[in-house]
């Protein structure tokens, strides 16, 4: 995935079944963002792979004061990239199981 300066990782091991997963997000390289986030920490939240949209969570982070509106797209993209990877991994392991 593209290096957005915002790191998103699983906050728990993915069991491959639950649609709701815990993610952790933090600013890894603030130079890639327009706002200054020197003192921000890691933000942990749950995300539903089936029903939720990454950009909505990014907007809620803006609303909550974690990010500036100007960076909402890059935060949304960072979440979207990680969510896509998680879904891809799940599909791959599902097709591997079916192939047996």
């Amino acid at each position: 995935a593209e290096d957005t300066g915002v790191r998103v990782e699983l906050a728990e091991e993915d069991d491959g079944n639950k649609s709701s997963i815990a993610l952790r997000l933090w600013v890894e390289d603030q130079k890639k963002l327009k706002g200054k986030y020197k003192d921000s920490g890691a933000i942990e939240f749950t995300f539903d792979l089936d029903t939720e949209v990454p950009e909505t969570v990014a907007q809620e982070m803006v609303d909550s004061g974690f990010f500036l509106e100007t960076d909402v797209k890059i935060v949304g993209k960072s979440i979207r990239d990680r969510v896509s990877l998680i879904k891809w991994r799940r599909q791959r392991s599902a097709s591997a199981s079916n192939g047996k």
Partner: peptide, 27 residues
């Protein structure tokens, strides 16, 4: 550890905690 809970009006819960030093990239 010092974690802070922030609840968005839509109901989502954000738990904020310090990023471990080991996870921060060299600037």
């Amino acid at each position: 550890s010092s974690a802070t809970l922030v609840v968005h009006s839509a109901g989502r819960r954000f738990i904020v905690s310090p990023v471990p030093e080991s996870r921060l990239r060299e600037q």
